[in-house]
């Protein structure tokens, strides 16, 4: 179980780092939000569940899973709210062929 937890945490850290790199590498707001909304959600989910596995069957791991569920619900909602703000402000997206 300890090893499973460590593997999950490793994967989570990998996705968190990828999200950060995508955040600075992608060309416009909307694509950046893809990196931010997805990679970060899965990354923190994996870190939380990995730590829950590592802790074993105690109350703390149940709490960790509740935090994970909370993030699973709220993170896409926040991403959607930000995306809608960007769209309502008519910020144009980058399309293929334009200069970055």
């Amino acid at each position: 179980m300890t090893v499973v937890g460590m593997v999950l945490v490793c994967g989570g850290v990998f996705f968190l780092v990828t999200g950060a790199v995508g955040l600075i590498r992608f060309p416009d707001i909307y694509t950046r939000m893809h990196a931010a909304g997805k990679c970060d959600t899965l990354g923190s989910l994996l870190v939380l569940t990995g730590l829950a596995c590592h802790e074993g069957l105690v109350l703390a791991s149940a709490k960790l899973l509740i935090v994970a569920l909370f993030i699973l619900i709220t993170s896409p909602t926040a991403t959607h709210a930000i995306a809608r703000a960007a769209r309502r402000n008519r910020i144009e997206g980058w399309t293929r062929g334009e200069d970055r």
């Binding site: 968190l16 950060a20 955040l23 950046r32 931010a36 970060d40 959600t41 923190s44 993170s75 930000i82």
Partner: peptide, 10 residues
């Protein structure tokens, strides 16, 4: 805002 949100999640 996106950046701050990402930092918060991390």
């Amino acid at each position: 805002i996106v950046g701050v949100n990402v930092i918060g999640t991390k």
